[in-house]
Every structure is written in C-alpha cells, then in structure tokens.
C-alpha cells in the first residue's frame, strides 16, 4: 500500500503543511489516492481531516507542499483553478444547495454554465441522476422543502452532474438525523461500487468497513495510520488510534 507509484495517483499530496495562525493544522501530509480507490479519513475532531479534504480543491489554501490532481498541480486562483474544480466533486456537511434554485436547477447549473451543455441535455442528465439518488419526484421543489437526507442526495447528484474524476465528501452525514444517514450512505456505497474515486471524511465506521479500500487515521494534523479497514479496525498500530477506537466501541 505504501509501495504505490506516485505517478499512478489520481490525487496526490506531497509534504503539505498548513497553519491557522499558531496552530499547525496539517503537518507534512503525504497521501496518494489511485483511480477507483475509496479512502476514508477518520480521526477526532480538530485533527485536520476536514481541512485536508477542503485543501484538495483549494477551498483551503496550503502554506507549502504540492497537491496534484491527475498529475496536474493545483493552480492558484483564477480560470485554471475553476476548471480543475469542475473535475473534483465536493459534498459538504451542510449540503449547501443553492437556496434560490429548484432541485433540478441545482443539478443543471454547473453543466450549463460551466461546461456549456445545452439545457435540454442537462435536464435529461440531471433527471437521470436525481432518479438514481432517489429524489427524481422532488425536481421542481426548492431545497428548503426537502429533508436533510434528500438534500444531501441532491448535493451528491449536483456534484456527479459535472462528471468528476474524484469525489470529496466532507462529513456528509454529520448534520443529518440518524434515520436519514443510511439513505445517504447507501448512495455513497453504490457510487463506490461503480468505481468512483472517493475521499470521504466521516465518523461512520460502518461505511469505512463496508466501502473503504483504505482508512487514513488522522490526529493532531498528522496522518497517524494508513491501512486497510480490516487491518485498522482489528489491529491498529498506534496508541492514538487504539485510544480513538476504544472510545467509539465502548458506546
């Protein structure tokens, strides 16, 4: 697993560092994600896992190090960055659906405005995606009329509509009521099965066991462990991970 060739990586982070003032939130992060791989990032809050996820499409800037998507280094602000972001799907903890647009428009806006797809074609693709995530009949509604789980599935459809090379999930189920978590995870598991490259920051250990190829455990801004789910959950190597897992399992 540490033997993979960096050239093979769809997403690669090399010696990435970031500070918030005095706080060193990302410490010398090295991570390679191959095409089709599902990497779950877990760790206690404040460990830097969300920052890591957001740095990959430059919603957070980094102080030094190199982040590459499909062999291309992340450009600074501007057209080039916008173009690259179109290839990186992002799903947020708080859904962030466009509040003034209908569900259908939320999904078609990117393809129409960014990729120049015709409205008819974008509508057709969007409807197919909405059906796929199980909210096709909600297409004419506004986001606020949907439940959290439905909104998050629309957000996934919105990201997929751009036909991204990789999908980033930043705690996609953390803002959801417990009974809605599974409907979102089911969509994500399906996506993983279809071979989508995914980086998922989550607290859902069940998802990590079920769908992840690798589990990356972060603590205090560092990657402490990088292992298969089997290895990580049954035989964690570091004390930090053992401590984290023991707290999860006692409840």
């Amino acid at each position: 697993m540490t033997t993979q060739v960096p050239g093979d990586a769809l997403v690669s982070l090399n010696a990435v560092n970031k500070h918030y003032g005095q706080l060193h939130v990302l410490k010398d992060i090295n991570l390679n994600v191959r095409k089709g791989e599902v990497v779950v990032v877990i760790g206690p809050s404040g460990s830097g896992k969300s920052t890591l996820c957001r740095a990959i499409n430059r919603l957070e800037t980094i102080d030094d190090g190199v982040i590459k998507i499909d062999g291309k280094e992340l450009p600074a602000e501007g057209k080039e960055l916008a173009k690259l972001r179109a290839d990186v799907g992002m799903v947020f903890q708080s859904f962030n659906l466009f509040a003034h647009k209908t569900i259908l428009e939320n999904v078609t806006l990117g393809p129409i405005k960014v990729k120049g797809v015709s409205k008819a074609e974008a509508d057709k693709d969007a409807m197919a995606l909405l059906e796929r995530v199980g909210v096709g009949h909600q297409a004419p509604k506004l986001p606020a009329q949907l439940s959290g789980g439905q909104q998050q599935r629309v957000a996934i459809a919105r990201a997929l509509a751009m036909k991204p090379k990789v999908m980033l999930f930043d705690e996609p189920t953390s803002a959801l009521d417990p009974e809605m978590i599974n409907e979102v995870l089911d969509v994500m598991i399906q996506l993983a099965k279809e071979g989508m490259t995914m980086i998922v920051v989550t607290h859902e250990m069940g998802f990590a066991r079920k769908a992840a190829d690798r589990v990356v455990f972060m603590a205090d801004g560092q990657i402490v462990e990088d292992a298969t789910p089997e290895e990580f959950f049954t035989n964690p190597k570091s004390d930090r991970a053992k401590d984290f897992l023991s707290k999860l399992l006692t409840h």
Partner: peptide, 15 residues
C-alpha cells in the same frame, strides 16, 4: 448569504 453557497458554487467550477 452563507459562505457555503459560494463554496458550493466554486466547487462545481464556477468563476
């Protein structure tokens, strides 16, 4: 307007 709206728009590649 919540900052997430702009982040979502940027993340689908809008300028």
């Amino acid at each position: 307007v919540p900052v997430g709206q702009a982040e979502a728009a940027r993340s689908i590649g809008m300028k």
